[in-house]
Design a binder for these strands. Structure first.
Lengths: 157, 157
DNA sequence: TCAAGGTAGTTGAATGTTCAACATGTGAAC
DNA sequence: GTTCACATGTTGAACATTCAACTACCTTGA
């Protein structure tokens, strides 16, 4: 009897339309940006994200766990990705003075300049295919909406 | 001299905020839904997408190329994924009468009922973490915006 | 009718990602 | 100060995706 309480509450047709539009658009946009980044700079989106986060951190370094969290990646994935970035010379690992378990990922100078180059193109694409085709008021709505989504997801862990 | 024309046109700070909010929110949402689907139904998002498209097609079948296009996947990826779905018994392949190169992917009865079950939960999650936390007017804005994004991407292939 | 070029789909190897197990270190309780 | 639970980060194997051939078939046109 209890199980039966969970009746499917379907979306109404306009909700469904909007939801679908979002899913399709965001998948295609992500694909496009990913391809572009890889073709022009040999970086995957997750590698790029890591460089961005490091570049914004104080002293351009972060603990692995913080970096994983801020780049929305699992620790394992970060560890592998970081090894790749390290072998490309864009990132360097160093042990953490206070906590011997800890590891800092540092952005190297080479990493910084690779990021600079990539960011210019990345923003260009974001502009061409996202910012510039969206009405400014709708862009604000997007900001509000996704902030709420992130907050909601944070509530449950 | 020509190369120098491409000056970085950075985003202004509110554009940047909205863009970031979107990237973060959509990554987290995608992650959440992916995990949920896999945990409860053993399906990846791309497998789910394939089942959805098939279920909506006339006679619940599509040519591989059409399916790839509508699920935004490469043909190679579809081919592999389809093999997995076939071995789970959710999809069945059949040669195409008119065109001997062609292959139809059919949704099986088992596939249809697996999809039904998954869809109920999927919608529930979409509602909990997306639809229900977004102001209806903002949701409309999202629909408009991402429709425009998809159109723009379509212009360049 | 047959050669040339295009399309459909699959394959296998290289590459990335996930998952569970592990090694190491910390910190709090006793 | 030893023990126990927990946290950090890495590893390797299983799994998924991408990329570049490749097979088979269709279409066009001379």
């Amino acid at each position: 009897m209890l199980g039966a309480m969970k009746e499917p509450r379907w979306l109404d047709s306009s909700q469904q339309r909007h939801w679908r539009a979002f899913v399709e658009g965001s998948v295609r946009l992500h694909d496009l940006m990913d391809r572009d980044l890889k073709a022009k700079h040999g970086l995957s989106e997750s590698e790029y994200e890591i460089l961005v986060r490091l570049s914004e951190a104080p002293e351009m370094r972060l603990r692995m766990a913080e970096l994983a969290e801020s780049a929305s990646q699992s620790r394992s994935r970060l560890s592998h990705t970081c090894s790749r970035l390290e072998s490309k010379g864009l990132v360097r690992r160093a042990t953490c003075p206070g906590d011997k378990r800890g590891v800092y990922a540092h952005l190297t100078d080479e990493g910084y300049s690779a990021l600079q180059r990539a960011a210019v193109d990345h923003v260009e694409v974001a502009r061409d295919f996202f910012i510039d085709v969206i009405d400014p008021a709708d862009l604000e709505a997007i900001g509000r909406a996704f902030t709420a989504v992130t907050r909601r997801i944070g509530e449950v862990r």
